[in-house]
Design a protein around this nucleic acid. Structure first.
Lengths: 325, 325
DNA sequence: TTGTAGGCGTTATCAG
DNA sequence: CTGATAACGCCTACAA
């Protein structure tokens, strides 16, 4: 790797001049510029980003902190983040936090030491005071604080949509598999469900069972639910993964979707469409969420004005086979 | 952020001494060491990784280049890579290449400029000469070259396993949905299939249809296949995603899995287990592949001896509902 | 055992 | 318009 000094020598100018043509800053006679450009070409010179970073205290690296990239919700998000970042000349560092405070703290240290320019954070674990003041942050999906730019979807409204939809297609008794109560997103969806059904005469608390946003536990929970309420004819799962779990449980008890039980999830991940029958769901604009969050972050990093710090994106009801009858 | 100089001042020593206690190099009187340690604590000092990198020409950053993190095969891989990397104090940069040479080249430039220490590459696009000589590489899943450490699974043997399995459970006419012919991995699996069935009297070339490792096209291909060969009773799909596509096609023609047609995929991604019926598959040890590749890479980076440059991992036949009858 | 000084590759300031 | 030179923060000879 040749350095700016090599280029300077070859072009018979000082490093300062080379630096000027690299950054298009200051005055350089067009003749000299040509010579420098030629030298750069000849040597296949590329400026050393590390050295630049040391000066500017900026690396054009951002971190994406998700609980677990293996959870099918996050790859699409990551894709969006990386796409937008790349366009603006940024690079994305992937961090799996496992919702583990220790790990998250570890990442924060690294972010500080490696001069990461900012981060997109999906977490409800990390408390505000663990964030580094100087490092820009955008919160995604799981709200943590009001003073930080945040991107979410309309979880409450989406849950209402889902539940009403089940009523619309004729369900008379609807259960809900909610996510962990300590996750705000899960709470919102639960509240949306409650908003619609709480006053119904058939409603009872035992129609709500708790999962952990994963398949397995949701399957168990659904089994319990069905055992207790044999006459359930509709289920709203707090996310698509749990909807799949519910589907398995339903099949296991010999019932059919949608004939015996209509089923709808939340998120709109690829999986919901891959299933047979295809699962109805309330789709979040996952890619957009990632893209918007990234643009927001880059603006903060580059000290550009931010239009709005709170983005709550619309969701879309997707009716598919699992609620079609 | 305090610097090494601040610490030195506070501890009343030179920066050299501080550096020594940081890196545990050279002699430092235990008293002075204590003083320095205390000063570091007081100031909450963290060495600046960028400055260190500028010296060492090492960043403890590695890149993971995959076609598309959105493809369910890769998140698990990425997870493994990140897990191992983190343990060894490395950080992972995520790159989606889309199998696009231009993009890959762009990443190579960045890798060079940002002093990325090495990369794990999943690609059949990039030619060897595009790699940067000084940057260690490990190839994963899709073989590119013999001189570079490589991690794959036994694709050929796995395909034989899958095909034999279909015969074992009584299939009399087996079709294959292969991946793109220009991808070595897809070829191997096709060859494995051929090895088993080529000599059978019922075999014909038209039992092989080509997909692109994605769901949609595989569904179309399967529809064609079924139209041409109404008597097919077993299908081996080149990967799980295509198996899902096949499942949809099969259902669409009113047939049932496994009663009318037994179906098996390849990869062992989460999706195969999520489906109903659960899909049989030849599982690759995806996580292990990522972990091994990463350890291999880190060894190369740190100039440690490598036991073996070519790792071909065993696959496992997982019989599930889609081939149980 | 500790300190001084030069270098890693760039950029920015200040002269000329 | 161009060139020296001092940062950026750290490490490592070489001296002391």
């Amino acid at each position: 790797m040749s350095t700016i000094r090599d280029v300077a020598k070859r072009a018979q100018v000082s490093v300062a001049t080379v630096s000027r043509v690299i950054n298009n800053s200051g005055y350089v006679q067009s003749e000299t510029r040509e010579r420098v450009l030629k030298a750069m070409q000849d040597l296949n010179y590329k400026p050393n980003a590390i050295a630049q970073s040391l000066n500017h205290k900026k690396t054009r690296n951002i971190a994406l902190v998700v609980p677990d990239i293996t959870n099918p919700f996050f790859p699409e998000l990551a894709r969006a983040v990386e796409d937008v970042a790349r366009i603006y000349g940024y690079t994305v560092i992937l961090c799996n936090s496992d919702e583990d405070l220790k790990k998250e703290q570890g990442y924060m240290d690294i972010i500080q030491q490696k001069y990461i320019d900012g981060l997109i954070l999906v977490s409800h674990t990390l408390k505000l005071n663990h964030l580094i003041d100087e490092v820009p942050v955008v919160l995604l999906d799981r709200l943590v604080d009001q003073n930080i730019p945040t991107v979410t979807a309309k979880n409450y409204e989406g849950a209402i949509l889902a539940t009403r939809h089940l009523l619309d297609i004729g369900c008379r008794k609807i259960g809900h598999i909610c996510g962990p109560k300590y996750i705000p997103t899960a709470q919102r969806r639960l509240q949306g469900y409650l908003h619609v059904v709480e006053q119904m005469e058939w409603f009872s608390d035992s129609l709500i069972v708790e999962g952990n946003f994963q398949l397995e536990l949701a399957k168990e929970a659904t089994l319990h639910l069905l055992a207790e309420h044999a006459d359930i004819d509709g289920i709203f799962a707090g996310n698509d993964l749990m909807a799949v779990g519910a589907l398995k449980a339903i099949h296991q008890t010999g019932r059919k979707v949608p004939q015996d039980i209509a089923l709808i999830g939340f998120d709109g991940i690829f999986l919901s469409k891959a299933m047979e029958p295809e699962l109805s769901t309330v789709a979040q604009p996952i890619y957009d969420m990632g893209a918007i969050a990234t643009r927001l972050l880059l603006k903060k990093i580059e000290d550009q004005p931010i239009d709005s710090a709170y983005h709550e994106l619309d969701v879309t009801l997707l009716q598919r086979a699992s609620t079609r009858r």
